[in-house]
């Protein structure tokens, strides 16, 4: 049964159509990934789901409650982790969590109990009395997430929760998300990092220019581009001529270049590689490295949009 239903949701800012007739459903207990480059419309979509923005048209239903009619009921079951560190730097971790707990309507012994629990989840109980501005980026991110768990939400929306942190904190956060999901929490996870989305999410929606351009499980999405490889070549001064020549080769599905990196999607990587190298040679472009990867979400995105995810 669907826990979250989005129907034909749209939002425009002036002439910019930020979210364009988006529809999808998420089941209870699912970890759902929302993937897309900057400006794809992910944050606007999330802002509408978290009651911060009113949609121009369409509807959102979470846990059986209509967003337009019962926003307070939705707020009770929804936890939101913003992309920014939405904490007060001069307050301690405990003071921050006490404040956010109160904002979720908690008080007294229950508030203290939930704050202790959240500090436990963040793994920062022993540093609870330190100010947030003395924390590392990873520790701040962990408290940022813990603050969204205080009221035991049924659904957790996480907007790029691991931006700019160390691998240790990233692992801690990913493990936390999996643990919460095992306990029954539904999670919507947006990220630039495909490896995180591939690791966590059972189903993924890919957004671009305000639209959902692909939706399905990892396997379903990979099947969209068949058994294709991504050849990544690092060079210098890669110009349009090089990419045009590669694009003209038989067996090449698509070519993009960003900076000094050229990405080629092909079903016959073994056969075309020699020809690609000879093009670089003929154009007097020195190759620094070549990497061949099997199809992944990045290549799916490249295939669908003709652009790299982090362009």
């Amino acid at each position: 049964m669907s826990f979250l239903k989005i129907r034909d949701l749209s939002k425009a800012f002036g002439k910019l159509q930020a979210v364009d007739h988006v529809s999808f459903e998420i089941s209870e207990g699912e970890v759902f990934g929302l993937l897309g480059p900057n400006g794809a419309g992910k944050s606007t979509l999330i802002s509408m789901m978290t009651t911060l923005l009113s949609p121009d048209s369409g509807s959102v239903e979470i846990g059986g409650f209509e967003l337009a009619k019962q926003p307070m009921e939705i707020k009770k079951i929804l936890g939101f982790v913003p992309q920014e560190i939405a904490l007060y730097p001069t307050l301690t971790a405990k003071e921050n969590l006490m404040f956010w707990g109160r904002m979720y309507g908690l008080s007294g012994a229950l508030l203290k109990e939930r704050v202790d629990e959240a500090l436990d989840i963040a793994g920062l109980k022993d540093r609870a009395k330190q100010r947030i501005d003395s924390y590392s980026g990873g520790m701040k991110r962990r408290i940022n997430i813990a603050a969204a768990l205080l009221h035991h939400p049924k659904i957790l929306i996480m907007d790029e929760p691991t931006v700019g942190i160390d691998p240790q904190s990233r692992n801690h956060i990913l493990e936390t998300v999996l643990k919460l999901n095992r306990e029954g929490m539904t999670v919507i996870y947006t990220s630039h990092y495909m490896e995180e989305v591939e690791f966590l999410c059972s189903r993924i929606a890919i957004m671009d220019h305000g639209k959902v351009i692909a939706l399905g499980s990892k396997e379903e999405l990979r099947k969209m581009i068949g058994n294709k490889d991504t050849i990544q070549i690092e060079s210098v001064n890669v110009g349009n001529k090089v990419t045009e020549l590669i694009n003209g080769l038989a067996g090449v599905d698509s070519v993009t270049h960003s900076g000094n990196t050229v990405k080629i999607i092909s079903m016959d990587s073994d056969k075309i590689l020699a020809k690609v190298i000879s093009i670089f040679d003929a154009e007097k472009r020195k190759i620094h490295s070549i990497n061949i990867e099997q199809s992944n979400l990045e290549s799916v995105f490249l295939h669908l949009t003709g652009r790299a995810l982090r362009d």
């Binding site: 802002s47 707020k75 939101f80 939405a86 007060y88 956010w100 979720y104």
Partner: peptide
């Protein structure tokens, strides 16, 4: 830094 938005998304 989105704390205003976060307050609004709470109660």
């Amino acid at each position: 830094n989105s704390t205003l938005g976060r307050v609004m998304s709470a109660r």
